[in-house]
Nucleic acid binder design. Sequence first.
DNA 1: CAGATTTGTTTTAAACTTAAACTACTTTGT
DNA 2: ACAAAGTAGTTTAAGTTTAAAACAAATCTG
Lengths: 170, 170
Amino acid sequence: MREDAHERENIVALEAAAGGAKEKLRLWLRALTFTNLVEGRVRARLRDEYGVTLPRFDMMAALHDAPDGLSMGEVSRRLMVSNGNVTGIAERLEREGLIVRRPMPGDRRSQIVRLTEAGRAAFEEMAVEHEAWIAGMLSGLSEGEVETLHHLLGKAKRSVLGADEGEESA
Amino acid sequence: MREDAHERENIVALEAAAGGAKEKLRLWLRALTFTNLVEGRVRARLRDEYGVTLPRFDMMAALHDAPDGLSMGEVSRRLMVSNGNVTGIAERLEREGLIVRRPMPGDRRSQIVRLTEAGRAAFEEMAVEHEAWIAGMLSGLSEGEVETLHHLLGKAKRSVLGADEGEESA
DNA sequence: CAGATTTGTTTTAAACTTAAACTACTTTGT
DNA sequence: ACAAAGTAGTTTAAGTTTAAAACAAATCTG
């Protein structure tokens, strides 16, 4: 009977965990479709109008937010991509004169990456356009809908991050 | 004065178009963060537990929905990736015995891609887990929140698709 | 202070991705 | 029938991406 109780608990737990699983899966697939759609359009316009790839734009955006520069690792964390990836993108951006890498004083393992003046100017020009593209694509949403989506996606993000912790002990 | 009227119209149009542009940009960045987060976790688990990459899983999912098989082009459209990309993924899946490609009767340019029995079994096993991962990650959302997000993302997607058309005449 | 561990970055190998060029086939318009 | 245009798929070149391994420098520990 101890066994039975356990089994019943497990079934209940499974069903609770599965609550709306199908709907959550559909939500996920739709979110993926949406971001792929927007990302594809942004990528195409960056290429066509500025001859820039999206990863380079993203890295420049991260650096623009940090006028004093960032370490390679910090760029990697902000863009949520691997370290090695950042190395490659930084090399190409440096080759094009848009960023510079210089040794970090006090830690010879580390490098500080910064936008050059040319990089800053190029980014700021693109950023204005980029914001307009996004606003144009989302023009079918009211300000309230934008706010609701922003809020719920924040909650969803926290749910994903929180789900990891519950995992550890499992 | 004709000039003045035009200029005023343009300013109004610009401001209207820019309505909430910053908020829309923030929304977009948050959506991107969210999907990258989930995608990274799904990718890692598919790799660790099944030794499968996400693109391969996605292609198998598309084929599982179509028991009679799909043309390469139809797979490309459903996954929203390029033709050449599908060629590469299909080659690797075929090498692993998970799919087969056979000539389309009646059109010798075309090929029909189908899951093998092994591919179907492998996918179905993964699909159950996959759904549970997603549901687990989104367990912090109520059913109502899931419904609202699903609805608003649908609207956002239609907004992006619709924005193209308004563009044509510009 | 020497050895072990950790941290920051690069390198490597394999896969994925796209756009563009190309091949082969089919459809269309004369 | 036949040339032109279109469609299906592959190939190619360049770049992006990841995970894993290699490395170097800094930090910790006994």
